[in-house]
Design a protein around this nucleic acid. Structure first.
Lengths: 337, 337
DNA sequence: CCACTTTCTGACACCGGTGTCATAATGTCG
DNA sequence: CGACATTATGACACCGGTGTCAGAAAGTGG
């Protein structure tokens, strides 16, 4: 069985390559009879056009790359899900590329990626969306890209974020309104801009409610469950023990919940726990976690959609949006008593 | 800034296209002086070869596609992680393509995928690894593929699986040895072959320990947390209430744990709960879930590695392996009293 | 120094499509 | 029916690389 190319189809159908190409792309100016004939030959020879050849001629791969380096698996899953939705809608495909932000090889790594598979564009998720170095590199290479949840202000590139500071403010305020004033905080990964923003929201809420900020109540995490477990230990060992904990994401909050339960503490009776992101785990455990629903899928979906728009038409204005985060209260937070 | 192609480099360096190509691919028979000269021009012009053109000439894309349709996000994450490890090792990239097994459009969908981005090979994960229709289609299209966790016996294609039946047997036996005899079971998604195998292991363990199989103790799940929650309700409402529950995966087990806790049941004192997969959630909750560690990453890693071998050399013998699953006991199971 | 390898190098076709443009076929209208 | 617009088709260059093969340059041995 020989390979079926556009040439064989053309010969077999008794028309030129170009006419076959026209039928392939549904171009006008092909007589119905000819079109019919060619389509029949497609079927007969079971012809599939070669996407690579197509890509070469049109200078397109119809592939978007997704860059990430994130310990939170559910975050990645949600990012992918949003990206895929936009990709498939526009007949693009998604290539995933986890890699490490740190290390001088980052640029070399990305360069290799571009050398290996020509991507029409890239979605940068945290912490890459905050890497000025990477952004400069991509601009220089004239690679289209979109930033998700980036704190960098750059009017030239697509950006979709959510209001982390406000979300953190609201959830902290929620705890304060429940009567808590001794509220511990677990920070996220220092490379992520969200870490600083959520921390600011926490501090602002305290300040606006006249609660003195106490640095001893702050633990350093990195968004991973494991780091949450370490921070949980620190916090639960404090004397006096805080009556509430706000962790920068749900994984770390889950770790606090686990340790508290192990230590026979009742949640929320003895201690309230709040997370961030509304990851699946927040509702898979008991008590369910009070958290901030961050529209990760939607952010990514919009970012990719705009990216594809930009790829198809360079004139598209640069899209920048900030989506709302929403407080979701579950059983893990209750009145202070 | 004009596009830098192999032609511009050739002209600039005063050599032929072919010589540039030789330097690019580290081919022998280029004098050191010439090689040096060309390399310098690469730097000067900041030249990056076009992967699409390369792919066309060599008939390779260096992209592997990963097919899945699985409600368990952590399973997918682990699959991706294993696949990526193998891909990056061999300088391949990974394209992800979730799609639905059901529906006649599956083949059309895959055909479209192949039309859009030429893949060098595909990894099939459950339930696709069990779709005879898809396997036949890929064979016909002469697309390389590897099956992960497939129950189909096909000596012609790569397959890496784990011993689900044995794993289910062992965990059921573990419960029996703890003194339980009234053990409920939650099935997985009917499209997945693992569902049947795990069910068989459960039944075999009962039989070999002279416990009569009771169909009333079996609930229908589909591997999702949500389905686990439904099944949990059924099971916990049974009279008498089973003293142990074995769910076909950890998500569903977590759902049982949550409902039990909500109903003030103590786990494992009042009821033992076991899962399957050793998903992250199994150790993120309290009590930690007794489960079967399935080497998902390793299975996928091996499958992809073999796939790449086969792509590079058609003569490679077809690899088929079955990896061991291992019992992990945590706090969610204890003696019957 | 010549015959004979071995090492370089480039011309050219080719991978499988698409874009441009000229020309052929067909349609329209006074 | 002729002048002209419109539609249909194909020849050919081109996208940016790689494979083949022939010929030039350099190395080797007697």
């Amino acid at each position: 069985m020989k390979k079926v190319t556009i040439n064989s189809v053309a010969t077999y159908a008794g028309v030129s390559k170009k006419t076959v190409s026209r039928v392939l792309n549904n171009e006008p100016n092909v007589s119905p009879a000819t079109r019919e004939k060619v389509l029949k030959v497609f079927k007969e020879l079971d012809y599939t056009p070669n996407p690579i050849a197509r890509g070469l001629a049109r200078n397109r791969s119809f592939i978007i790359g997704c860059l990430y380096d994130n310990p939170s698996k559910s975050y990645i899953t949600r990012v992918q899900s949003g990206a895929l939705e936009a990709c498939h809608k526009h007949h693009y495909n998604l290539l995933i590329h986890p890699c490490e932000l740190r290390g001088e090889e980052l640029i070399a790594n990305i360069e290799h990626l571009l050398t290996t598979s020509r991507l029409d564009g890239m979605v940068l998720t945290p912490p890459f969306s905050d890497s000025q170095e990477l952004i400069n590199f991509l601009k220089k290479k004239k690679v289209h890209f979109a930033r998700v949840a980036s704190a960098i202000d750059d009017a030239e590139s697509i950006s979709v974020r959510s209001n982390d500071e406000q979300g953190a403010y609201e959830i902290t305020e929620h705890l304060i309104e429940l009567g808590h004033s001794n509220i511990a905080f677990i920070k996220g990964h220092p490379d992520h801009s969200a870490t600083e923003q959520r921390f600011c929201g926490y501090q602002r809420a305290l300040a606006e409610h006249n609660i003195t900020f106490n640095p001893k109540l702050v633990a350093e995490g990195n968004f991973s469950y494991h780091s949450g477990a370490d921070s949980a230990k620190e916090i639960l060992d404090l004397n006096p023990r805080p009556s509430a904990v706000f962790a920068s994401n749900d994984y770390m909050a889950a770790a606090v919940l686990k340790l508290a339960t192990q230590r026979q503490l009742k949640v929320p009776e003895d201690i309230s726990i709040a997370g961030f992101d509304n990851a699946p785990i927040a509702r898979h455990i008991w008590p369910g976690l009070t958290t901030i629903a961050q529209p990760v899928e939607e952010m990514t979906r919009q970012a990719v959609e705009q990216l594809i728009l930009q790829i198809s038409d360079e004139q598209t204005p640069v899209y920048q949006a900030t989506l709302e985060a929403k407080l979701i209260t579950r059983e893990s937070t209750a009145n202070y008593k």
